[in-house]
Structure formats: C-alpha cells, structure tokens
C-alpha cells in the first residue's frame, strides 16, 4: 500500500473479481429480469469449496495441479448450487409477479448463508497456506511504477481476463450463446423457434455460478480466508458493478467491475479511510442511479416488469 500505483494494482485485482461476479448478476438479469440475490452466496460457496478441496485432497499434489483441481471442484460445487437455485427456487416463479422471485431469492440467500454457517462453522475458513505462499510473495512480484504486482494478483488479472474473453466469444458466436441472447430478448419467440428455454436459463445460471466460483477461490487465496458472511458484501458490490456498467449488459459488467475496484482502491488511497471503502461503492451506486441509471454501457432496455 501507499503509492498510487499500488492502489491501482490492488484496485484492478479487486475490480477483476467484482467483474467476474457481476457477470452472473447481469446474465441472469438479462435473461430473467430478476436480481439473483443469492449469487453472492454462490461465490462464497465457491471459495469454501476451493479451500476445502485443498485442505482435504491437495496434500499429495503439486501446487499448480492442486490449485487447478480446486478451481474445477469449486466450479462444480457452485454450479450445482446455482442450478439448484434456478430449478427449485426460481423456475416455479417464472411467470409470477415480479416481487415473488425476488423474495424467493432473498430467502435462498439467507438459507444458503446459514447452511454454510451450520456445516462449516462459525470461524472463517483459512485458505491452506501452503498453496498460497508462493503466490502472495511480493518479492517475486513485478515492480511497476513503484508498486508491486504479486504473482497472485497477476494470476487473478490474467485468469479473469481470459474468462471474460472466453465468455464474450461464447455469447457472441456459439449456438448456445446466441440462444441466450435470443431468450433474453424475447422468451416466447425463442420458444417458438425451438429453443429449450429451460435449458438456456439453466445454462445461464451454471455459467454465472462457475465464474463466481473462480472468483471465490481466487479471493479466498488472495485474502487468505473465506467466511460465510463474505458473499453478501461481495454480492452487493458486484451488483453495483453490474448496474454501473448497465445491468443486463455483459461488457458493461466487466467495465463496471474494474472501475468499481479502481474507485474503491483510489478512494481509500486518497482519503486514507479504509473503513469507509464500502461506503464509497454505495456512493457510486447512488450517483450512477442519479445521473446514469442505465449505466455506462446500458442500452435503452424496455421495462420488463
């Protein structure tokens, strides 16, 4: 900490993570028009799954392989949870009044949080130190304008970037990606051309959950612990990022996430008030809603209530 360039590096790292989580919000919002309040929990569960995997089975493996497998495992666990949410808590409410799925989502958010609390205990779960010691070594980092980019920060930025590029290509060019865009725009018509809506929506949840899981593992490695309460604040920030960029808009979520991370880090750097960093992001949310409610890249989307 201290220098401006360090603040930028830290902000960028955090921003990448916000962006990954924000993508899940924005994709679900785009396709169902609802805020998946439980998405933060999916991220948190991903972090737990990664840390648990390394603690239980990481022992005999080499570090990169163990980390890779941990990410895959957490993707699996989070996706199952995300798919379960869609299947049991949201799908029955797809044609219900707008409030119903939101309330269901809040309920599921609380329930998931509590279920992690009950099964994982009251203390934050440490990310196994062995697997992160090389990654967080600032000595091994790259010096940039007086700041240091640690290997883990570099990894977070690279992985996030690759995932975002991959997602963009998928949505733009794959058959499923096009079907997702078609479904987001006109669900009934998508059905009329033969798209299986349920499958598309389920896939959306799975992809969003997978991205959140990767974010969860990376953050728990970064801050060295994961806690059952972590999902809620991360979710709130990521949602802010999604609104910032323009809800429902995939590149918007990416831009919004990165900018929010930078604003937070620079705000703390400028004021020195690290306690208030969460207040900054809320301030951003309010300002965006006041002056640019459709977000930076938001299109004029028809009200879908």
């Amino acid at each position: 900490m201290g220098t401006l360039s360090q603040a930028v590096i830290n902000g960028l790292t955090l921003g990448m993570v916000y962006a990954l989580i924000a993508l899940g919000y924005t994709m679900v919002y785009g396709i169902l028009g609802m805020i998946n309040f439980a998405h933060g929990e999916i991220y948190m569960i991903g972090g737990y799954a990664g840390a648990t995997f390394l603690g239980l089975w990481g022992g005999g493996l080499s570090v990169p392989i163990a980390l890779g497998l941990a990410v895959l495992f957490s993707i699996l666990v989070s996706s199952l949870h995300g798919a379960g949410l869609e299947r049991f808590a949201y799908r029955p409410l797809r044609n219900a009044p707008a409030l119903a799925p939101l309330i269901s989502a809040i309920g599921m958010s609380i329930a998931l949080q509590q279920y992690v609390f009950l099964t994982q205990g009251t203390t934050p779960k440490p990310f196994p130190q062995f697997f992160r010691q090389d990654l967080v070594a600032y000595e091994a980092g790259i010096k940039l304008f007086g700041g240091t980019l640690s290997p883990l920060q570099g990894l977070i930025i690279i992985i996030s970037t690759l995932l975002m590029i991959g997602l963009s290509l998928f949505v733009r060019h794959s058959k499923m990606g096009k079907a997702m865009r078609a479904t987001a725009e006109d669900r009934r018509m998508a059905g009329l051309v033969g798209i299986d809506i349920n499958r598309v929506i389920l896939t959306t949840f799975v992809i969003g959950s997978a991205l959140a899981a990767v974010a969860g593992v990376m953050v728990s490695a970064y801050i060295s612990t994961i806690f059952y309460r972590d999902g809620y604040l991360a979710g709130l920030k990521a949602f802010t990022a999604a609104v910032f960029g323009g809800i429902g808009n995939i590149p918007g979520a990416m831009v919004g996430g990165v900018l929010l991370g930078l604003i937070e880090a620079l705000g703390v750097w400028a004021t020195g008030a690290s306690d208030w960093k969460d207040v900054f992001s809320f301030g951003v949310l309010i300002l965006v809603l006041l002056f640019k409610p459709r977000g930076l890249l938001g299109e004029v989307v028809a009200e879908k209530v």
């Binding site: 865009r181 078609a182 725009e185 009934r188 018509m189 299109e299």
Partner: peptide
C-alpha cells in the same frame, strides 16, 4: 403476430 424479430441479433 407482430413478427417478433430478435432485434439485438
């Protein structure tokens, strides 16, 4: 009725 083109595709 109303065609329902996917306007963003």
């Amino acid at each position: 009725e109303g065609r329902h083109i996917f306007s963003r595709l």
